[in-house]
């Protein structure tokens, strides 16, 4: 892997964002709206219940912040790819000495930057407005955030592979994929709230264990290593599968001559 190439793409993302303030606004606008809606709702429900359901507040706001980590990581990879499709620049990249891994790595690194900005804003606002301090989870945040990032990148790779295979027609899926898994991922409710078949799907997702773990940590339960291990193991499986699919789509695109169609339209 050439670090020069990764640096070149990071530089490009930096140029793109520093030239366009709307992109920076967009980075924090949606998570901010989500936090305000869910935060206000939980404050209202808490008030109605006479302050008897304080954990409800923390579950929901914690869910918003954790979900945003996964979503931003997925978008970091998928949107970086889509940018090149939209600007018809993908052709220039495919005929330049760029390895898929270098391209993906740049998207992932820039995704980390995007996620850091968005989540930092959410953490501060949640603390200021809803008295939610994410740091009460202490060191547990590190593996939780790490696992969510890994799964977000995996979903981003799958989204990119779909666009590469089916062209811009699959663009909507790049946005929809995280929301397709959201109900089974148990972002805002425990796994046993789902019907049996939903629970089976949920158990196959690495992020489900993290959201479960987050709620347990907020309830001051001991850290569940088993859940974290399961999440990381599933992440490895998902990531290997996504990398395999991405490489297969790229190879198959070359073999079937589909790359030139995706890159020129």
């Amino acid at each position: 892997m050439s670090l020069h190439v990764v640096y070149a793409f990071l530089l490009r993302y930096l140029f793109l964002y520093t030239r366009n303030w709307i992109r920076i606004i967009e980075l924090i606008f949606w998570p901010l709206m989500e936090l305000l809606v869910w935060g206000s709702l939980t404050v209202f429900l808490n008030g109605k219940a006479g302050g008897q359901v304080p954990q409800f507040v923390t579950y929901l706001i914690g869910g918003v912040i954790f979900w945003d980590i996964l979503f931003r990581a997925q978008q970091g990879v998928a949107i970086s790819f889509l940018e090149d499709v939209w600007t018809k620049n993908l052709n220039n990249i495919f005929v330049a000495p760029v390895r898929p891994l270098e391209y993906l790595t740049a998207g992932i690194l820039f995704g980390i930057l995007r996620t850091t900005v968005a989540v930092s804003v959410l953490i501060v606002l949640a603390a200021m407005n809803f008295n939610f301090n994410v740091f009460t989870m202490k060191w547990a945040l590190v593996p939780y955030f790490g696992s969510l990032l890994l799964f977000g990148w995996t979903l981003g790779m799958l989204s990119s592979a779909l666009i590469l295979r089916f062209g811009q027609a699959a663009e909507a899926l790049a946005w929809a994929i995280p929301f397709l898994i959201q109900p089974a991922a148990c972002v805002f409710y425990p796994l046993n709230s789902l019907p049996e078949w939903g629970q089976m799907i949920g158990r196959c997702l690495p992020c489900t264990y993290i959201f479960e773990g987050m709620r347990a940590t907020l309830d001051h339960q001991p850290f569940n290593w088993g859940q974290l291990g399961m999440s990381l193991a599933l992440n490895l499986v998902w990531m290997a599968a996504a990398a395999g699919i991405y490489a297969w789509v790229l190879e198959s695109g070359r073999r079937r001559g589909l790359l030139t169609r995706v890159t020129s339209h």
Partner: peptide, 10 residues
């Protein structure tokens, strides 16, 4: 190629 572009916003 006449059929590819460089990022328009850079």
């Amino acid at each position: 190629s006449a059929y590819s572009d460089l990022p328009a916003n850079l």
